[in-house]
Design a protein around this nucleic acid. Structure first.
Length: 475
DNA sequence: TGAAATGTTGGGGCG
DNA sequence: ACGCCCCAACATTTC
């Protein structure tokens, strides 16, 4: 009888374009093992929204293949399963989190000791972080040359179809998915999530198809508009590997090719966003302290504020700045936030409230369904001005102007901040400027059913610039 | 993948 | 008719 091959599922919860599964299937009957690992040292335990997505993804995958679910430190669990099954090979997709390298080395040692062939594959990224280097052999610290190097390295490899595989028939203990408690109970805040998302491989494929049909043509022009619906919303699918970046890339290229030159600009724009994800992981891999330590060392002495009340107002969408509050409420209700609004809300936390970026990073980690250790930390550092190739610190968003520019008629604000829905366009991004009568007519009572601004943006901006002066020249 | 402050220009009102 | 001023509109610089 052929001995089974062990396929360790990680952030690759799909069957198609999956190098690890393809190789495992070629070796023998496949054991599909997923380990819920809250124990590996140094790891960031999954946040609440991510756990919801994980549950739904595993549920979807479990309808197609028999899953073995175990809980514990992944290396220990793998050792157990190898011993229980006599599997002779292990296959997995590599991960780039700061704690993952050591874990993968321990797994390799376990395999070596048990004479099991250990195989590691890429696929979570288009380019392995080691493979993209600048002229002097260093990792890139600037996005634009990085992205050019990616484009220059050619198109991603052809996609792998779902392999023929035979699930292993041996008896193997598995936890019940329900018993993992990944879904919220008291209270169950996930109602809005189910309306917005279909986690899993099928959902990802449908989302990609819908994006190419409905969003891509306007992506370049309207991707910054939260009142439109042109973004791909693929990020959580990519985060958990419901889809691979190569699948997204090839599908967009195919649509571009089919449309003649018509989609060239907009397709390029989308591919560049995929490359921001690559860049984030490139940085994370080469600078593994990215989640906690400012990339630019002078920011270590930045005079941040302690302000628990303001932090809470931000988290709950009660800052009194409509575009910020709309974003934070969208996040709470759906597990996502439009990209432009993420920048505005993050800038507000960091620069208007002077709260450390890591507080925002932590909140997003818990509330975003696409919370991702690479993109999350790189993006927070980017907004804070302390990251690699970051926005300059003094680029401080004005939440009113940003709202007026990108949510021109306030449709996005009205959707997520219904207490402002009846304000005229002119005041929907700055209710404090509306005359008393206008507020009354719209049913807005500032300080009662919608907060006064927690800070005055003009003064907050001055304060932020002064704080920045304190670290200028420091290192 | 900004915003605000400051500088420059040019058309029109007006003495 | 001409110069002067005002001030949008646009451009540049600074944070």
């Amino acid at each position: 009888m052929t001995s089974p091959s062990l396929y360790w599922l990680r952030n690759d919860l799909r069957l198609s374009d999956n190098a690890a599964l393809t190789a495992a299937a070629a070796q023998g009957p496949v054991i599909f093992l997923y380990v819920l690992d809250d124990e590996t040292p140094g790891e960031w335990k999954l946040g609440g929204a991510s756990r919801w997505w994980l549950h739904r993804s595993l549920e979807a995958l479990g309808r197609k293949v028999p899953l073995t679910l175990r809980r514990g430190a992944a290396d220990k669990v793998i050792a157990e399963v190898l011993a229980e099954t006599g599997a002779k090979s292990l296959h997995f997709t590599r991960d780039y989190a700061p704690w993952a390298g050591a874990l993968e080395r321990r797994v390799k040692d376990i395999c070596d000791a048990a004479s099991v062939a250990c195989h590691r594959y890429g696929g979570f990224l288009l380019h392995e972080p080691e493979s993209i280097r600048n002229g002097s052999g260093e990792p890139y610290r600037v996005y634009t040359p990085f992205s050019k190097a990616c484009f220059a390295s050619g198109e991603p490899k052809p996609l792998k179809p779902v392999p023929d595989f035979a699930p292993w028939k041996g008896a193997l203990r598995s936890d019940g998915l329900q018993d993992w408690g990944l879904l919220p109970t008291k209270p169950d805040w996930s109602g809005g999530f189910a309306q917005h998302w279909t986690p899993g491989e099928e959902g990802a494929a449908q989302r990609l198809k819908a994006f190419i049909a409905d969003g891509l043509a306007h992506y370049a022009d309207e991707r910054d508009r939260p009142d439109r619906d042109v973004t791909s919303r693929l990020s959580p699918h990519l985060r958990f590997g419901n889809i691979s970046p190569a699948q997204c890339w090839h599908a967009v290229r195919a649509a571009q090719f089919k449309a003649g030159a018509k989609l060239d600009k907009t397709a390029e724009k989308f591919l560049k966003e995929i490359l921001w994800r690559e860049f984030s992981y490139h940085l994370l891999h080469h600078w593994p302290t990215l989640p906690t330590v400012p990339f630019r060392p002078e920011f270590a002495s930045f005079p941040w504020s302690e302000n628990p009340a303001a932090l809470k107002a931000w988290q709950r969408g009660k800052t009194g700045y409509p575009i910020v509050d709309a974003g934070m409420r969208e996040l709470w209700a759906t597990g996502t936030m439009h990209n432009r609004v993420r920048m505005i809300a993050a800038s507000f936390l960091i620069k208007d409230l002077l709260i450390p970026w890591a507080e925002g990073e932590r909140w997003f980690w818990d509330t975003l369904v696409d919370a991702d250790i690479g993109s999350n930390s790189a993006s927070w550092q980017w907004v804070a001005g302390c990251g690699a190739d970051a926005a300059p610190y003094f680029r401080i968003f004005n939440p009113v102007l940003q709202g007026e520019k990108f949510d021109t008629r306030g449709a996005y604000v009205r959707k997520w901040v219904p207490e402002l829905a009846r304000l005229p366009d002119q005041f929907v991004h700055k209710p404090w400027e509306a005359p008393r009568l206008v507020l009354e007519t719209a049913g807005v009572a500032l300080g009662r059913n919608y907060p006064h601004p927690v800070v005055d943006h003009g003064k907050a901006r001055e304060k932020a610039l002064a704080a920045f002066q304190q670290i200028k020249g420091a290192a």
